[in-house]
C-alpha cells in the first residue's frame, strides 16, 4: 500500500497518469469486503442445503430432540460480547493505545474460544447421543453448516493471536492497523452469519 498524501507535490510536477485519489488507501478494505461476500456465498449455499435436506431425519433425531436452546443462548451471547469487545479494541487502536488494544483483543479471543469450546461441547453431547453427521441428511447439513462457521471462528482466533504478537513486536504501525481492520470485518461478519444460524437452525428447528 502506498501513501496518497503527495497531492501537494503533484501540483508542481507534470502528471503523466490519472491518480485515483481514494483508491490506494482503501483498496485492501474493498478487497477484503469482496472476500467476505464470496464467503457469504459459501454460507448461502450451506444454508440452502440445510433448507432442502434439513427435514430429512431418516427416522433419526429431530432438532427438538437434540438442541438445548439455553446452551445456544449462552453461545450466542459469547459471540455477541466478542463483537463489542473487538469494537473496543478498534477504539483503543484509533487512540493509539497498544496496551488497551491488546487487552481488548485478548478478551475478544477468550470470548471466541468460549464460543468454540461450547460448540465442541455441544457436538460432543450430540455425538454421544448417536447424532453423528452420518445419521441423517438433517445432521449432515447441520454439522456442515455449523462446523464451517465454527472453523471460521477458530481461524479468526488464530489470526487474532497472530496479530497480538505482531502488535507486541511492531506496535500499531499502519500495516498492523490495516490487518486489525480486516480482522474486525471478518469477526463481525462471523457474528452476522451466526444470526442466520441461530435463527434458522436452532430457533426454527426447535419450533418444529
Amino acid at each position: 500500500m502506498t501513501m496518497a498524501n503527495n497531492t501537494a507535490a503533484q501540483t508542481e510536477m507534470p502528471v503523466f497518469y490519472l491518480k485515483e485519489e481514494h483508491h490506494p488507501e482503501t483498496g485492501t478494505m474493498l478487497g477484503f469486503w469482496i472476500y467476505l461476500m464470496s464467503d457469504s456465498l459459501i454460507f448461502g449455499i450451506l444454508f440452502a442445503t440445510y433448507a432442502v435436506i434439513g427435514q430429512n431425519y431418516a427416522a433419526g433425531p429431530a432438532p427438538t430432540d437434540l438442541f438445548d436452546l439455553e446452551l445456544v443462548a449462552i453461545n450466542t451471547s459469547m459471540l455477541l460480547f466478542s463483537s463489542i469487545t473487538y469494537g473496543f479494541a478498534m477504539l483503543q487502536m484509533e487512540k493509539g493505545s497498544i496496551a488497551g488494544t491488546q487487552l481488548w483483543l485478548a478478551i475478544t479471543g477468550l470470548f471466541g474460544a468460549a464460543f468454540v469450546g461450547l460448540e465442541l461441547y455441544e457436538f460432543h453431547e450430540l455425538w454421544s447421543l448417536g447424532a453423528t453427521p452420518m445419521r441423517s441428511g438433517f445432521l449432515s447439513a447441520f454439522y456442515t453448516l455449523v462446523a464451517t462457521h465454527g472453523l471460521h471462528v477458530t481461524f479468526g482466533i488464530i489470526w487474532l493471536v497472530t496479530l497480538m504478537i505482531q502488535v507486541a513486536k511492531h506496535g500499531l504501525i499502519p500495516a498492523n492497523k490495516r490487518r486489525l481492520m480486516c480482522l474486525s470485518m471478518f469477526w463481525h461478519f462471523l457474528d452476522v452469519i451466526w444470526i442466520g444460524v441461530f435463527s434458522v437452525v436452532y430457533l426454527l428447528g426447535v419450533l418444529g
Binding site: 482503501t26 478494505m29 450466542t76 455477541l80 478498534m90 484509533e94 500495516a175 492497523k177
Partner: peptide, 27 residues
Amino acid sequence: DHHGDGGAGHGTFNSYMIGFILSVILT
C-alpha cells in the same frame, strides 16, 4: 489524525454501544 492505510471502519463508543444493545434486544 490517522491517515494510515485503510481509512475504514471508524466507529465511536456510542455507535458500538447502540449496536450492541440493539443486538442484545434483537437476540
